[in-house]
Design a protein around this nucleic acid. Structure first.
Length: 536
RNA sequence: GGCGCAUUCGUCUAGGGGCCUAGGACGCCGCCCUCUCACGGCAGUAACACGGGUUCGAAUCCCGUAUGCGCUACCA
């Protein structure tokens, strides 16, 4: 089935004994990352969808930090995640540093709430203490496996006599609290797949409170979502199998079950979860290569959906207005760097001179180009990835951010229109136009190529002389002069152009010849060509 | 092992029984344009996982099988 249609309220209500839609009014969604590291692109996508969904429906968007796993969570990661979300243009109505009516927003600070709800469940008879040891459980599991039976907890402690429980608790025997999962089926609604059904026998009485008194993920999520009034849970596909357990808890609490939307996962090129091996896995790495945030953002949205070229330049407002999460497919998609690159190129090409100039300047400053152009040029010649790898620490070392001086700034601005059609990512600027920012230099290979070009010396000298005498130094006059050169030298045009390009820049790939000579200015152009001629 | 979800060109996808000799986009290949590299234009390459049904007719509906992923934890 191709997901995407929301069943009408009537048919859906008929499927469930309880009305499903929580509050028919206001939409409340949340994004709940675990702060165990930077914001992964897959999570970023989840955050984005939540944001779009909230804004689209005039609802509110809550940022919640799931840091119950203390050993792996850090405050630094929280800051990083918030930073990435902001960079992507997301904002939220409530969150750790933005207290609202549902504070606090870190699970570690919500413990009293969880225990309050544990008491409720206990009082309702939905929980029971389980004294089974890890060893006993392990034995049960192995036995089941040996008989090729599905293993779920036997429920051995479910019917323990009250006096037994009291005695063992008095004796300080460690115990966990298990959810009493009723027989029957659990059905919930997923906005992309309609009804999803699980047999409760396959769920088994799961642990809700550990023997050390801490709370388990599935309980925490439900309590948080209930107390925060979440109406739509939008999260990764990997949670689909957790959902029936959570629904059991909702029902036990008598709380309205929210709508769910489990979005397809994001994979790397080998169909495995996107990881470092695949290259970039976070926004900052991509921007360090010169991808533009809005392009990455749009790309993330359009995965799992039909793609239309006009979407490349959509703004966040466009996304909110036109992007429908219900149109999402249900199968995982693979992150394709080639397509992103193409999109980025398209985006760059529709930028006007001023906008592109700004982007370039900002980017070049960030990667340290204005401070150490030669070093950055070396890296860039190895590719955007090499450059990005080197500047990865830049957020934590802002000293690398070197602003351009007046001359560098002007040069960058003038170069923008010349390089636009040659770039896919901003890093491409450096190998193509980096030479403008430093004195003429030849690699051994370039020098050899220049020397091997027919009549190179005469070409360079004649061009230099001609440029020096040009009455008006503009692109038009430069072009007329250069175009006339082959005839005067009785040479073919190609080698003439090649010699000039090499003599001017020291390399054989550059922006347009005439425009480049113009951007250099008469003096610099003449000087460069003369210097090159002298080498021959 | 059990349960769940998924499966259309290499990749992202269109497709809701006849409009499908399966459409678009990226990539790749070729041509045109051209001062290099590109941009742009044009053309080409390439897919319904497999097997059974249902039907006059199936990529589309049903049933199996295979494969991938997820859950099956006192992880989140």
């Amino acid at each position: 089935m191709r997901g995407g249609r929301v069943p009408d309220a009537v048919s859906w209500a008929a499927m469930n004994e309880q009305p499903q839609q929580a509050a028919p009014g206001r939409v409340v969604v949340r994004f709940a990352p675990s702060p165990t590291g930077y914001l992964h692109l897959g999570s970023a996508r989840t955050g984005l969808y939540n944001y779009i969904f909230a804004r689209r429906h005039g609802g509110s968007f809550i940022l919640r930090i799931e840091d119950t796993d203390l050993s792996r969570s850090t405050d630094e990661a929280i800051l990083q995640i918030i930073g990435s979300m902001r960079e992507m243009g997301l904002d939220w109505d409530e969150g750790p540093e933005l207290p609202g009516p549902h504070a606090p927003y870190r699970q570690t600070e919500r413990r009293p709430i969880y225990h309050e709800y544990i008491q409720k469940l206990l009082a309702g008879g939905h929980l029971y203490p389980c004294f089974c040891t890890t060893e006993e459980l392990e034995a049960e599991r192995r036995a089941a496996q040996a008989e090729k039976r599905a293993w779920v907890y036997s429920g051995k402690c479910r019917a323990l006599p009250a006096e037994d429980v009291e005695r063992r608790q008095a004796a300080a025997e460690p115990f966990t609290l298990r959810m009493h999962v009723p027989p029957g089926k659990t059905v919930f609604h997923d906005m992309l797949r309609d009804a999803v059904e699980f047999d409760n026998d396959t769920i088994g009485d799961f642990i809700v409170q550990r023997s050390d008194g801490t709370i388990t993920y599935n309980l925490a999520v439900v309590v948080d979502d209930v107390t925060m009034g979440i109406t739509h849970v939008i999260r990764g596909d990997d949670h689909l199998s957790n959902t029936p357990k959570q629904v059991v808890i909702y029902k036990a609490l008598g709380a309205p079950v929210p709508e769910f939307l489990h979005m397809p996962l994001l994979f790397g090129t080998d169909k495995k979860k996107l990881s470092k091996r695949h290259g970039a896995t976070k926004l900052e790495q991509l921007t360090a290569m010169g991808y533009l945030v809005e392009v990455v953002r749009n790309y993330l949205c359009f995965l799992s959906t039909e793609f239309d070229e006009s979407m490349i330049t959509w703004t966040m407002d466009d996304l909110v207005e036109k992007f429908d999460v219900l149109k999402l497919g249900t199968s995982a998609s693979i992150f394709d760097p080639d397509k992103l690159r193409w999109m980025n190129g398209r985006f760059i090409r529709q930028l006007d001179d001023v906008a592109l100039g700004e982007r370039l300047e900002e980017y070049l400053a960030r990667v340290g180009f204005y401070g150490a152009s030669a070093a950055v040029e070396e890296l860039a010649k190895l590719g955007p990835e090499a450059l990005a790898a080197e500047v990865e620490g830049v957020e934590t070392a802002p000293a690398l951010l070197v602003a351009p001086d007046v001359e560098q700034e002007a040069l960058t601005r003038r170069l923008a229109p010349l390089v636009r059609e040659k770039m896919d990512v901003l890093a491409d600027f450096v190998p193509i136009a980096g030479w403008f920012f430093r004195p003429l230099a030849f690699s051994a290979e370039a020098a050899e190529r220049l020397a091997g070009t027919a009549a190179a010396a005469e070409t360079l000298r004649m061009a230099a002389a001609g440029l020096a005498e040009l009455e008006v130094y503009d692109v038009e006059h430069i072009e007329a002069l250069i175009r006339d050169l082959p005839a005067r030298l009785e040479a073919k045009p190609k080698p003439v152009f090649a010699a000039l390009r090499l003599g001017m820049s020291g390399q054989s790939i550059t922006p347009g010849l005439f425009e480049s000579l113009w951007v250099l200015g008469r003096d610099a152009a003449v000087e460069r060509l003369t210097t090159a001629a002298a080498l021959l």
